[in-house]
Design a protein around this nucleic acid. Structure first.
Length: 602
RNA sequence: GGGGCUGUAGCUCAGCUGGAUAGAGCGACGGUUUCCUAAACCGUAGGUCGUGGGUUCGAGUCCCGCCAGCCCCGCCA
């Protein structure tokens, strides 16, 4: 529909100009005053588009909205080019102009979609081939030596989907895993390691530390209980940061093992990431502080080096600081984030040369990013024409409305959460098979359970507007009806069923006949796919894509329920098969962009 | 105390640049299967969009006040 609305837009502008030549001539800002304000129709019965500007113009032109609408419509009716696209416009309500796209025009779009693997979504146009604009998506970001838990779920899933959409649009995308690999926690880990498994640091072979989480817990306990252990730990941090070989060896060991564990989760979720942890920016931290100082932004306060924020005041009415160097001389996460922003926007080879940098983290970090972005901007590290955005999301809550915890009150491990989703999908499927008297092979059952379980977790998260907290419920996400992954997957399975039962979906054909409203509803919805993708790219809200796909499934199910495909008369049968094909293609691509795998049977 | 986010049907949530009678899903109630997977479809009931002002031809949407909940607030990330 995007191409149609773009074609119509200038025609309306022309009509406005001809309808009100005196105003057009006198008005300096013709463009803003005569914005056609073309919008998708708010309801199906209003057609495909609506022009809302007659109401807005009433005051400026000192005429009634209806009279203005009539004048616009008269002009449109005289324009042959416009009438090639739309039926005669209708005026409704206080002065809305409703446009309905001609059936033959919709059909042309429909045929074009059938042949277009991109389903109408344009490639972005910036840069030459091989030098497309770079979009950095910073997401997931677990901490080394800790396990991925439910807190990493949303960032990982939402970030991946956003990255997929940019990739599909033809951007060069860098999916960065900004892992926590340089915190003070390494002091205690290394100290503990030296005591319990010194041999790990002496051999050159890979040493298996076993359960890293348990190891972390033991270290933490000792750190909390034993003051001499604390002293040693602090010394280890200093050693590590000054490049001590043994400390580095230990650090590498921890990182590698963690990496291995993270990768298992990413493989399961089919998510790819490039690891570039905090340690990567170490060499740049000193320079960040130096340059902030040189540009006059840096202020020493109680021994800490800070940049005071503009327009953000604290309790005492004084501006809030962003601390970039602690009293003890150490750097902190604001320093790292500043170094990262700077590196990411600096052009190659000294940096990434990004045009857009997106941070997918929980909304609790909103203040932090606001401060960091402001400092980076004032330091001149965010080039004009680029964008840096925090994409915040809410907490994952349990069904009691409180932060999700296990029954014993512990953080939910991501691994366990995924296992449970798959296990539940598995048992649901087995129950169903029994009820229906179906026999299926184990591999089939495993695959369906896995796809449905993981898809359900992802979809449940993505289908919610990310800014609000999100109530996690296995029962709801795995439900067979409603706005869930299984519902969407099932629509696709129905189409595969038609193909299996003898419907040739691949046949090319440019003479379709449609007569039923269920068919036209489906066609109209299918043609909106391109608009939705571009909207998600702009707003970074994958839930819009989910809503679209859910509606598509609903409309398809209505069509499927009310009209026969295989048993229809030949002329309708082939047309309906084409419609099924485009529906399947759209669902598949949409789900792929959400990172959700699909099934032929379930 | 300051800042951010949120408040829409019994529950979980949509609601795009302000537009026509505020939408889904679940749950409730009623119906549909000689037919491509009924994991579906159709129908009924359910609303003072937290609250009070303001801007506007028009406000769930924008602005201000208030109430409630969650999160953050100088040397953790």
């Amino acid at each position: 529909m995007r191409s149609l609305s773009r074609a119509i837009q200038p025609l309306i502008r022309e009509a406005l100009q001809r309808a009100f030549p005196e105003a057009a001539g006198n008005t300096r800002d013709f463009k803003s005053l005569f914005d056609p304000s073309l919008a998708p129709a708010s309801k199906p019965e209003f057609g495909d588009f609506q022009i809302n500007c007659a109401l807005t113009l009433a005051k400026a032109l000192k005429r009634s909205p209806k009279a203005i609408a009539v004048a616009i419509v008269d002009q449109l009716n005289m324009n042959a080019e416009f009438l090639k696209i739309c039926d005669q416009p209708e005026i409704a309500g206080p002065g809305f102009i409703n446009l309905t796209v001609r059936a033959d025009c919709l059909m042309d779009e429909f045929y074009a979609r059938l042949e277009d693997p991109r389903l109408g979504v344009p490639l972005q146009k910036g840069g030459d081939i091989g030098h497309e604009p770079l979009v950095i998506v910073d997401f997931s970001s677990p901490n080394i030596a800790k396990e991925m838990h439910v807190g990493h779920l949303r960032s990982t899933i939402i970030g991946d989907s956003i990255a997929r959409i940019f990739e599909f649009r033809g951007y060069h995308v860098l999916r960065l895993n900004h892992v926590g690999d340089w915190g003070t926690q390494f002091g205690m880990l290394i100290t503990h390691l030296k005591e319990v498994a010194p041999q790990a640091l002496e051999t050159s072979a890979v040493f298996d530390l076993g359960d890293l989480v348990a190891f972390y817990r033991e270290s933490k306990k000792r750190f909390d209980d034993d003051t001499s252990f604390q002293v040693k730990s602090r010394q280890e941090v200093v050693k590590l940061q000054s490049g001590d070989q043994i400390a580095l060896k230990a650090w590498t060991l921890f990182c590698e093992q963690s990496r291995h564990e993270f990768q298992k989760i990413y493989d399961r979720l089919d998510i790819s990431l490039t690891e570039r942890g905090e340690s990567f920016y170490n060499h740049y931290l000193g320079k960040v502080v130096e340059d902030l100082d040189a540009s006059g932004l840096l202020v020493s306060d109680d021994g800490a080096k800070c940049v005071f924020l503009e327009d953000v005041v604290g309790k005492d009415g004084k501006p809030l600081p962003v601390i970039v160097q602690k009293t003890d001389g150490g750097f902190n996460y604001a320093t790292t984030d500043l170094a990262a922003i700077r590196y990411r926007f600096t052009s190659s080879p000294k940096g990434d040369g990004a045009s857009r940098v997106i941070y997918v983290t929980d909304s609790g970090q909103a203040n932090h990013f606001m401060g960091v972005f402001q400092v980076a901007s004032r330091a001149g590290w965010i080039p004009s024409g680029t964008r840096v955005e925090h994409v915040p999301f809410g907490l994952v809550l349990g069904e009691d409305g409180k932060k999700l915890k296990t029954r014993s009150g512990e953080t939910v491990r991501l691994r366990d959460l995924l296992d449970e989703a798959v296990a539940r999908a598995h048992s649901d499927l087995c129950t169903r098979l029994k009820e229906e008297g179906r026999e299926e092979e184990d591999a089939f059952i495993q695959n369906v359970a896995n796809t449905v379980g993981l898809g359900a977790v992802k979809y449940a998260d993505l289908s919610q507007n990310r800014v609000t907290n999100y109530q996690f419920s296995f029962d709801k996400m795995l439900a067979l009806q409603g706005n869930t992954a299984p519902y969407l997957l099932y629509a696709l399975v129905r189409i595969s069923g038609i193909a299996r039962k003898g419907g040739d979906l691949s046949k090319s054909m440019d003479q379709c006949t449609f007569s039923e409203p269920q068919e036209w509803n489906l066609i109209r919805h299918l043609l909106k796919f391109d608009d939705v993708i571009l909207e998600v790219e702009e707003e970074l809200l994958p839930n819009r894509l989910c809503s679209y796909l859910f509606e598509l499934s609903q409309i398809f199910n209505r069509f499927y329920d009310q009209l026969p495909v295989l048993k229809a008369d030949q002329s309708f049968r082939d047309s309906r098969l084409r419609l099924c094909r485009l529906t399947a293609d759209t669902l598949k691509l949409g789900l792929k962009l959400l990172g959700i795998a699909t099934l032929e049977r379930m």
